[in-house]
Structure formats: structure tokens, C-alpha cells
């Protein structure tokens, strides 16, 4: 018999190599971004920045255009997430807990925005929103963001409801809780960790949206991705990296924390989609 037949040395070495490659792929770009954002005058072929400074990053933060974009991004993503949760919660609940005729058809319709490219959605709605007078407004951008965000929120919440036991609600009702109390005192406390993560990912989908905002915002709604895309063609690496970091860091940190907390609480990772 071979000693430790499941882990021969060759396989262990391969596994280690795989982990290192994976780590390099996942962290390399982030490292490059961080180094560029926190240094200045960092020219080839220096491997490590000569000057470490947070000044460009702080300058970026102080720039009124950056601040305005940050505000627009927070506003659109926040409102979109709120509406998506309001629409998505009842839908995800019945999709997750009931079997009924037409369920798969509903899922198909909700899956549609994943197949129809956002380009086509944005170009089509561009004209409609122009007619409605909503083009170039936050309201218009929110409306269009709902197309990918609502299905996303529902699919994320579906997983939450799959692990949900309605028995707690029956129990609360027979104990004398009215429907409102059942929701506030029982369902919400049971659901909220999953709900928070679903909201976070839904927020992220809206927050990262470029094409839809561009096509419907018509250059008047300047969110962070719009600003960043414009900066990439002109700016220097330091300011680009700074802006990119500003855009990516808050949700990345929030999601990392949430995943940590959730994994600790339930022993299960949050599942998301790109």
C-alpha cells in the first residue's frame, strides 16, 4: 500500500502551484492598482515606487467632479437597490417557497436581461426615455438600471428563501402576531443577513454599470464609471489608479466583510454573479 495515497507529493506540489497562480491572478491587478494609486513619478523600470504619497488620492477625493460623480453613483445605486428590493422581495418569496404553474416561465422572463446585451437594452430605451423626458436624469438612469438589477436581486434572494423555513411565521401568527408584526419581528430578523448580502450585490451591479448609464444619462448623469472611463483616455496612471480605487474599494471592502461575517455565521459562502 502506498503511504498517503490520496496526496502523493507530485499532486501536492501541483496543488501548491495552482494556489500560487490563482493568488497571482486574483491579487496581481489589485496590487498594481494599489501601488500606482499610492505613489507618484513611478517610472519604468523601477520595481517599487520611489515616492510613496497619498496626495494624488486625496486630491482626487477633493476634486468637485469626483465628489459630484460619487454623489450621483451613490444616489442611483441606492435608489435602484431600494426599488429592486421592494419589487424583488415578494417575487423571490413566492418563487422560492411556492410551486405553481408558470413558475419556470417567470424565471425565464427574469433571466432574459442576462441574455439580451445591455447595449441593446440601453439603445432601445434611449429613445423611449427621450420621449418620456427622462433621458439625462437620475430617474431615467435608475429606471434602466432596474432591468439588470431587479432580476439579479431576485435570483440572489431566491437563495435566501431556499434556506428559509416558513414554520417560524406560522408559529408567530398562532402566538398572536399580526402580519406586520410577523414581518418585522420574525421574518426580517431571520432573513436580514441574506437580505443584506443580496442588497450589497444588487447595489454593486448598479454601481458598476457603465453602458446603460452612458446611453441613458446622455452625458448629463456623470457617475464614477463614466468619469473613470473618460479619465482613462487622458489621465496619468496615478490619477487613473486613484479614481479606480475610489470607485472599487468601498464595495469590495463591504463585500469582503459581508462574506466573512456570513461565512462565520452560516459556514457558507455568499454566491454572486458577475
Amino acid at each position: 500500500m502506498m503511504p498517503d495515497a490520496t496526496h502523493p507529493p507530485a499532486r501536492r506540489a501541483a496543488a501548491l502551484l495552482g494556489r500560487m497562480v490563482l493568488g497571482a491572478v486574483l491579487l496581481g491587478p489589485i496590487l498594481a492598482l494599489l501601488l500606482h494609486a499610492s505613489s507618484t513619478h513611478w517610472f519604468f523600470p523601477r520595481l517599487v515606487p520611489a515616492e510613496w504619497t497619498l496626495a494624488p488620492l486625496l486630491r482626487q477625493l477633493g476634486d468637485p467632479r469626483t465628489r459630484a460623480a460619487l454623489g450621483a453613483s451613490l444616489l442611483t445605486a441606492g435608489i435602484t437597490t431600494g426599488i429592486a428590493l421592494l419589487l424583488g422581495l415578494p417575487a423571490a418569496r413566492v418563487l422560492g417557497l411556492r410551486t405553481f404553474r408558470g413558475r419556470s416561465l417567470v424565471l425565464l422572463v427574469l433571466f432574459l436581461p442576462n441574455i439580451v446585451p445591455p447595449l441593446a437594452i440601453g439603445m432601445g430605451l434611449n429613445v423611449l426615455l427621450l420621449r418620456l423626458g427622462l433621458a439625462g436624469s437620475i430617474a431615467g438612469v435608475v429606471l434602466v438600471h432596474l432591468v439588470p438589477v431587479v432580476p439579479y436581486a431576485i435570483l440572489a434572494l431566491l437563495g435566501v428563501f431556499a434556506r428559509y423555513d416558513e414554520g417560524y411565521e406560522l408559529q408567530a401568527r398562532t402566538l398572536g402576531a399580526n402580519p406586520c408584526q410577523v414581518w418585522l419581528r420574525v421574518a426580517l430578523p431571520l432573513l436580514w443577513p441574506g437580505l443584506a448580502v443580496a442588497a450589497l450585490f444588487a447595489f454593486l451591479v448598479s454601481w458598476s454599470q457603465y453602458v446603460l448609464t452612458l446611453l441613458v444619462g446622455g452625458g448629463q448623469v456623470i457617475t464614477l464609471p463614466i468619469l473613470l472611463f473618460a479619465a482613462v483616455s487622458g489621465g496619468n496612471p496615478t490619477s487613473i489608479a486613484g479614481l479606480a480605487l475610489l470607485f472599487a474599494a468601498p464595495p469590495a471592502v463591504a463585500i469582503a466583510l459581508a462574506v466573512r461575517a456570513l461565512a462565520a455565521a452560516a459556514g457558507q459562502p455568499a454566491r454572486g454573479m458577475s
Binding site: A32, Y210, V259, R260
Partner: peptide
């Protein structure tokens, strides 16, 4: 954690970062 962190990065930012790498 690394996989979820990667998921959290918007494509736009990732593309910028890849350019820098």
C-alpha cells in the same frame, strides 16, 4: 475571500488594473 473580492471589482476597474499590471 479572494474569489469574492474579485467578484466585487467592477469590470472597468479590473481592466484598468490589468493595464497597469
Amino acid at each position: 475571500l479572494m474569489l469574492n473580492l474579485n467578484l466585487a471589482f467592477p469590470h472597468l476597474v479590473w481592466a484598468v488594473a490589468l493595464g497597469l499590471l
